[in-house]
């Protein structure tokens, strides 16, 4: 059982914020997180998904989710275009 509150500290010279968000994403079924950055330190506070705080936990996790989607969408923009262009390439529905 996770004790509340519980924090993990990362040095941002070693791990990027995006890396940390990606790692935290996988634990969203068990807990939610607050992330803060100060100087070169990234602090993650872990909250267990408590019944009474369910909505707050869901919002915290949703923000991480949407943030990651936005980062990945930018990074994979060309790949997405190529994959979808391939899917529609024989239909005559899109301009070549």
């Amino acid at each position: 059982m996770i004790q509340i509150p519980n924090t993990i500290v990362f040095d941002n010279k070693v791990f990027s914020l995006d890396t940390i968000k990606g790692a935290l994403y996988k634990f969203a079924d068990n807990c939610s997180f607050d992330i803060s950055c100060s100087n070169e330190i990234i602090t993650v506070t872990i909250h267990s998904v408590d019944e009474n705080q369910n909505l707050i936990a869901r919002i915290r996790n949703e923000v991480i989710d949407q943030d990651l989607r936005s980062i990945i969408a930018k990074e994979t923009s060309n790949v997405r275009t190529l994959i979808l262009a391939n899917a529609f390439s024989n239909t005559g529905l899109i301009e070549s």
Binding site: G22, L68, R69, I72, A73, T76, V79, R80
Partner: peptide, 8 residues
């Protein structure tokens, strides 16, 4: 919904 650009 492309898996190639979905988190995780």
């Amino acid at each position: 919904s492309l898996a190639e650009s979905s988190p995780m």
